[in-house]
Structure formats: C-alpha cells, structure tokens
Amino acid sequence: MENQLSNLEKIDIETFQNDLISWFKNEQRDLPWRKDQDPYKVWVSEIMLQQTRVDTVIPYFNRFLEWFPTLDDLAEAEEEKVLKAWEGLGYYSRVRNLQSAVKEVREKYNGVVPNNPQDISSLKGVGPYTAGAILSIAYGVPEPAVDGNVMRVLARILSIWEDIAKPSTRKVFEQAVRLMISKEDPSSFNQALMELGALVCTPTSPSCLLCPVREHCQGFYEGIQNELPIKTKKVKQKQVQMAAFFLTNQEGKVLIHKRSSVGLLANLWEFPNVEIDFPLQNERRQLAGLSEDTLGVIIESFKRMGQIQHVFSHLIWNIDAYTGTVSAFPKEEQDWKLVTIEELEDYAFPVPYQKMKKLYLDRNY
C-alpha cells in the first residue's frame, strides 16, 4: 500500500486541506441535508444518495423528512407507507435496511445514532462509506467516507493506478483519506472531496482549470487525468422479455399483486405479469394461456398499450404492456387485490409499473 500512496510525499497536506475546504465553504451547493448536522438526516440523505443523482434525491429527501421527521417516526411507521415514500427511487432494500437499523438504534442505543465506528458499522445497511459519512459529517470524527467520487478524485491527485471496480482497492483510498483528512474539520473535508468529484473532477472531461487543488494533483501535472481512474467494465446486463396487464373487472376496479417479501423489489405492488422466454406466434391466445397457467388469472379480452423498458444494474426489463378485463384471479391469496383507480395512489409501485399506469390513464381518461 505504501507503494500505491508514494505520491502523498509530494503533497503539502495542510495546504491541500486548506485549499480544498476553503473552496468547499465558498462553492458548496445549497442542499437540504446540509442545513444542520442531525445524524438521522445525514443518514437518510446518504442512503438516498447511493447510486442516485442529487437532483433526483432532493424532493424525495424533503418528503421523507416531512413524513418521518425523526428517527422514532421512521421506526414506528408501517412498511407500506415507508415504501410509498421511497416509490420511484429504486434499490428498495436501502430503505428496508434503513428502517430495520433505526429500530435497532431505538432499542439498543435509546434512539441516539452511534458515534463510533464499531457500533455504527454493525447496523443493517451501514457499510464503510455510510459509517464514515455519518461519523465525519454529523459527529466530526475523522473517519474516511470513500465513494466513487472520492476514489476518482484521489486516483487523479495521487496517480493511483489500481482498479476501482475491485472491492479490495477501496482500502487503498481509505488509507489515503486517513492520512490526508483534516482533524479539525473532517466534515468539510469529506464533503469537499465528494463535491469536487461531483462538480469539477467529473468522470469525463474534468474541469482542471477550475480545480482548487490543481497544484497538488499528480494526474494534472503528468497530463494523465483523463486516463484515471482505472475501472473495469461491468458484466453485460441480462435482457428479460415480459408481458404485463392493466386489468379491470366489471366494476372498473384494477387487479394488483404484491411481490414476494424476498428478492428484487420485495413487497412492492405490481400489475399481473409473466415472463416470456419463447417467440409468440399467436399473441393473444398464448398470453391468455400463460396468464392462466402461471398466475391463475383469467383474462377475457385485452389489447396492447405499448412497450416499457426499465434498466436495473444487472438486468433490463422489456415489458409489453396490455390492458384488458379480468374474470377470475386467486381471491383466497392475500397478495392479490382489486382496488379503484384512485386507491392505486396508496400503494407503492416500482417505476416500470408507474409508467404503465400512466400509459393506461393517458389513453383512457
């Protein structure tokens, strides 16, 4: 590791800290989670910001804090309401883990978010990055908070040629932050590194001439900033072909189904759907048969509304959306419901099914 961080010797760390933190205090974005250093709010924001853009998170964060202003409110909330508050953000295991963890904080730590690495890291869904972010931002503890932005920034500044896609590489960057972090203001230091990666030291075409720490950057000095960081490409996503049905009964109520409590999009609601792993020769007959055999749902008539594509990190759903009437479904099962169009608003649906609902409403109202 010493070899990988040898360029640290070329940096005046105190000057680097001052240049970085001064820039951050002058140029930081006005974001709702920066209004105070409440550990609960910092925690919520950091979980939301995982794999999600800042602009997307802002309205979700504001609504989430409106619905669950305190840790106790979230701990006591019904899961259905929590999922509804998260609807559309994706990666729903994040909010399930968050709610489980705040319950543990309430029971084990009297509702006070732990302020040390050992206890906070033991909470469900709290990895090294989230732990470091909460500890440094909320409590002023000089712990590293290393995400993709930070790894990109430090790969360029210190000319680190390790593959950031490998989990083991994170240790190199965590050690770099431990050696560089401001003990007086770890909150601003960690946030400044993240902000620098988001605004200036971007993945492509970094704005080096605007960079407050350009004079410390080995990548800029050597003219190799565009070659770093090293990151191997992900495995190609699996394509899944599906048919989904917006089905109404004679009263105009819509048939919905609750997904399993485990696996992808657990406990969210969806419209009846089937996976298609063969070419359709007689579309209507085959889909009707598939729905009856796979779901126990008997469709009287249906027509095609359009196609929806949804991209996950590991797979792509290609959904052919249909509307039709339903004459039978497994009533004895609790995970099937008939609800009015208005009542659909009370249930949390993944994004592709929200799009499907919009497709139906745009065509029928």
Rank of each mutant, 00 (worst) to 15 (best):
L359N: 08
M305Y: 02
F278R: 02
N273F: 06
L158N: 07
L135T: 12
K253R: 07
V200Q: 13
Q354Y: 15
I157K: 01
P206S: 12
E333W: 15
Q309C: 10
T340C: 05
A85Q: 03
T325Q: 05
S261H: 09
I299L: 02
Q218F: 10
E283L: 06
A321E: 05
M194Y: 01
Y322H: 03
Q191H: 03
S188I: 08
M194L: 01
R96Y: 06
F329V: 01
E76D: 15
D163P: 08
L49R: 05
V213L: 07
Y347M: 04
L199V: 13
Q281R: 03
A165C: 11
Y60T: 06
P32D: 15
I160F: 03
W86R: 08
L361R: 07
S100N: 07
D335H: 12
K233H: 14
F220G: 11
C201T: 08
M151T: 10
C208L: 04
A288R: 02
V112K: 14
S182R: 13
L89W: 00
I160R: 04
Y40L: 06
L65H: 05
E104N: 09
K124N: 03
G197F: 09
R170I: 05
K103C: 06
Y40E: 13
Y40G: 10
L49K: 12
S45H: 08
E345W: 02
T340G: 14
G296T: 00
I160C: 01
I256N: 03
C208T: 02
R29P: 07
P128N: 14
L20R: 14
L135K: 07
K171H: 10
I137L: 10
V172R: 14
K357N: 15
C211F: 12
W161S: 11
R53V: 12
